Amino acid sequence: MKQRITTYALFAAGWILLLTAAPTAHFAAWNLLIQLAIFIPVVAIPAWRTGRMSSVDIAWPLGLAAIGIQTFIFAESLTPLTITVGACYTVIGARMGIWGIRMWRRGEFDHELPRYVYQRRRWERAGFRSERVSLQFEISVQALANATFLAMPAILISTNHSTRLAAVECLAILLWLIAYGLESLSDLQKSRFAAAAIASDNRTSICDVGLWRYSRHPNYFFQWTQWVALTILAVPSAVALHDRVSVAQVALFILGLGLAVYLMYNTLVVYTGAVPAEYYSVRKRPAYAEYQKTVNRFVPGRRRSI
């Protein structure tokens, strides 16, 4: 319970920071309302009725796309920088949202996805007795992340009036493009491998091709790298607010950007990413344990010999 209270307090602090700074308040207030308008009907109400939260895989990315669209609306000036960050959020969210909708249409949400089944193990170990309450907590955490720290790069950049891109901003955009391309490539490689495995009736084989030879989860790594790029992209905008907000607020904004990177790392590795996925992979695929010994879990690197 203490951990849950701390989590809520952290998100509350992030939202208060955005709300109490005049340049970010309007965007932040609307974004919270829009995230709630997405999460409540798409996942919170269905989860209360069905006991499943898998539709959060639709709500969360749609919330990111909504942040991108809001950037075009609430940006103080439509500049190359604000247009770029709005497009990045919209593309990230739309891509994952469309995939989530496809899964829903195929009936994959009729049963809880394994990563959310795994959450029940955590609730049991933590001593939480009400599954309904735990479901709503997990859903609210993802909604609040979209309302605060994950929206912070877009909200800060929306205050930037500069019509010229700084060198660091150009490098951040290039990093985002490369990471997005490599995430898409890794997903394509995995999809083709899975299709071939099904065609050959070899469903226990290990995807060990392309980028998957160097990371057990290259799609997660390059998704996280996109958030690193967005954070770097937003730092100059945070610093540029020094004449409109206090120095302490600028420092807290930069800290908040760092928290966005940490939150995505924790999500993609521990929370709903690599750890839950590998818990089931080891049980379904006997050779996966050997794959774990030879290939890095997250950051791509040289294969190890055993």
Score class of each variant (00 low, 15 high):
P286A: 11
N202Y: 08
V141W: 14
R122E: 05
I232F: 11
R132G: 06
G100L: 12
R132C: 03
L113T: 02
Y214G: 01
S77Y: 02
I58H: 04
P218E: 01
Q119A: 08
V133C: 09
Y180S: 09
Q35W: 06
V91Y: 08
T71L: 01
I40Q: 08
W123N: 07
L36I: 12
A197Y: 03
L17M: 14
T225L: 15
V235F: 08
I98W: 10
R203E: 14
A195Q: 13
A94W: 00
T204C: 08
G127T: 02
M103E: 02
E169P: 11
P236G: 08
R304S: 00
A59W: 05
E169W: 06
I40R: 05
S130W: 04
F253M: 11
A22M: 02
F109H: 12
R129P: 07
T231Q: 12
R216W: 01
P61M: 10
A21C: 13
Q223D: 14
A94R: 06
H111K: 15
L241V: 07
E290Y: 06
S55A: 15
D243F: 01
V282W: 01
I101K: 08
T204M: 12
Y291K: 03
R49H: 12
T231H: 07
V250W: 04
E108V: 00
L165P: 10
T204K: 14
G68I: 14
L10Y: 06
E131Q: 04
L144Q: 11
I306H: 02
R132V: 03
V247I: 09
E278G: 12
M152E: 07
P46E: 00
R125M: 08
R121K: 15
V209D: 09
E112P: 07
L19N: 06
V282A: 00
R192E: 06
A29G: 11
G86P: 10
S205D: 13
R164S: 12
L81C: 06
W227N: 09
Q223I: 02
Y279I: 10
N266M: 03
A154N: 04
V117E: 15
W48D: 00
A195W: 02
A94E: 00
W60E: 05
R192N: 11
R213T: 04
W212A: 04
L78R: 10
I101V: 15
R203S: 01
L156I: 02
L165S: 05
Q136S: 02
G93K: 08
L230A: 05
V91M: 14
L252N: 00
A126T: 03
F39R: 09
W30M: 15
A289R: 14
P236T: 03
Q136Y: 01
L62A: 03
T6S: 00
W212N: 05
E278Y: 13
R52I: 12
I178M: 10
S158M: 06
V168W: 10
L32Y: 13
G100W: 14
L241E: 12
G107D: 08
A21H: 10
V209P: 01
V299D: 00
V91C: 06
V85T: 11
L135D: 03
V56L: 14
G256E: 02
R164P: 03
H242G: 09
A287S: 14
W123H: 09
H242P: 09
T163I: 04
R285F: 05
A9D: 00
